[in-house]
Design a protein around this nucleic acid. Sequence first.
DNA 1: GCGTTTTTTTATGTATGCATTAAATAACAC
DNA 2: GTGTTATTTAATGCATACATAAAAAAACGC
Lengths: 225, 225
Amino acid sequence: MSDKAQKPASNAQRAVRQLREMVFSGELAAGSDHLETELAERLGMSRTPVREAALLLESQGLVEMRPRKGVRILPVSASDMREIYDVLTELESLAAERAAEAGYSEPELAALAGAIADMDRALAAEDLEAWAEADDRFHAELVRLGGNSRVRMIVAMMSDQVRRAKASTLFVRPLPVQSNEDHREVFAAILAGDPARARRVHRDHRRQARDVLTGILERMRLRNL
Amino acid sequence: MSDKAQKPASNAQRAVRQLREMVFSGELAAGSDHLETELAERLGMSRTPVREAALLLESQGLVEMRPRKGVRILPVSASDMREIYDVLTELESLAAERAAEAGYSEPELAALAGAIADMDRALAAEDLEAWAEADDRFHAELVRLGGNSRVRMIVAMMSDQVRRAKASTLFVRPLPVQSNEDHREVFAAILAGDPARARRVHRDHRRQARDVLTGILERMRLRNL
DNA sequence: GCGTTTTTTTATGTATGCATTAAATAACAC
DNA sequence: GTGTTATTTAATGCATACATAAAAAAACGC
């Protein structure tokens, strides 16, 4: 059903993928600079595809290219996080509303229900990594159901930007019990075909998340993300 | 106060600017394909900076690069337009809300008021071009006042995508009398510090615009944008 | 003629070379 | 030693060369 990459895939594409991985894993630390030549060597290719990849990542807000300093991995501050969450809140709420309007049948919402179930399981087992993974899945699926490809793209972009910060704060946050409640309610509203409720609930859910996360970030400002 | 580009500006930047112009002016028609070499020649530079520019424009959704077909200028369909307006509606409404929360003083809102005045003038003179320009200015300023740099970027991106379509439909649309009313009301709500009203009014305004525009596009589907 | 295979053409993706210029270092005056 | 100027170093931005692969054209079999 899902064959990701059968074809060779260009070096530039590989560079994008690998650089993203390196940023998310922290192998390229936030705030650090890296010369094009250095990155090219590390990826085993010439500067050209690396440069193209860096340009793309720059347009996505993950890095910044400065004339002589190299590629800088952009840190994410608390105020960045607030901005990003505000965007996510608006666009995901829209997606929730649209999903509720679309009148999906229960089987069509299976993926969403699956993500919720996984989050419950993960929460019970106190497996935060698994919870975070299922949470991502829930939000991605919600946006997919919203049926707006531009919303999907923008949300993916913004999610990338918070991914690092989320990972670092995951174990500092309170157990996301309320979160699971919220997700269930969004799901119920979509299934019931109640757009206004879906929007409102999801909106409040995201606002909540934003405040928790930015609060933590402000408190632990020592280390950059 | 505002010096755009004193320094030489790289070829790649020039390529971005010029290609954008060419797309907006229709010199590069929607749906048409252009080889990198051809564009490079037209811009008087080598393929490298042209390619970088095209890559950027691709990430902004203006063009698409297909392996052997060249750079394709993406057409904007009615359903694209609906997607884009939905995004604009959400994010600009947020900006309006935040602007109202910020409690700007009247002088700080001068640019916004200026845009509204210009729109009134243009409307009275039935100068639609001038009206469209002032309308753009109003929306850009509103988003600036919202104070979220990511919202600003995304809105700018989406606005670019509709710019061509707006130009083509400008003279088919009814005179935007209601539009001016709406803008004045959004302004009043911001000045009065009433976030909920600013959001609601702007939201309705955008929805309205979306329906008008997509309606027209669906009716005149003959020519691509 | 028409379908198939071979050859040719050509656009891209990538590597590489090089001029430019910013930064760093050294030289120097005092 | 410190502030200034000259020199060196090195990273980028761009041009260019080239291998690859896809499409177009030609050759061919029947």
